[in-house]
Amino acid sequence: MVGSSTWRGLLLAALSFPAAAADRIALCESCHGPGGNSTTANVPSIAGQPVTFLENQLIFFREGLRNAPVMVPLMKGVEDAEVTSLARHFNGQAPRPVKAASPDPAAVARGREIAGKRHCGQCHLPNYRGRDQIPALAGQRGDYLLDTMRSYRDGKRTGADTTMSEVLDGLSDDEIRALGAYLVSLP
């Protein structure tokens, strides 16, 4: 049994960002890269992502709603206040996208056409910088984007709404690769 003064201590520790969160930020950066700019395959960049998007994903991991073997145990039991602190911190970091190798122009053109038909830039915004619960796609790692789109299409991920599983429904792997090529070509 933990005494109430201990609980109060834990609560204050959780609320007193940045000191309490410094260790955790370092832990985040050990995979997501300095300032949340990833240089590791399949690990997303989180720098500059919208606060609500980051909060949502951290809560999905905590609640066991998004399957990621590394993130789920890391987030277990993390309180809302620290989730919000972490989300605000990485939202405030400047994105420094790694310039991808020049994608195939034909795939980029095909991807642009698909994105236009599916109106991707309507929610993600025409510059693909995202807003609220909707992530920035411009500047994100291509390998991670492909994996994410396949997960939504295949019903392995739901997200804040069912929107993405519906928008991507019926796309072939080739079409998803084309969309990925287009998205990584964005400035």
């Binding site: 599916r118 309507q122 069912t162 928008v167 019926g170």
Partner: peptide
């Protein structure tokens, strides 16, 4: 997107 897609949210 017929015939390759199905009706969707957008």
């Amino acid at each position: 997107d017929l015939p390759q897609g199905v009706p969707g949210w957008k």
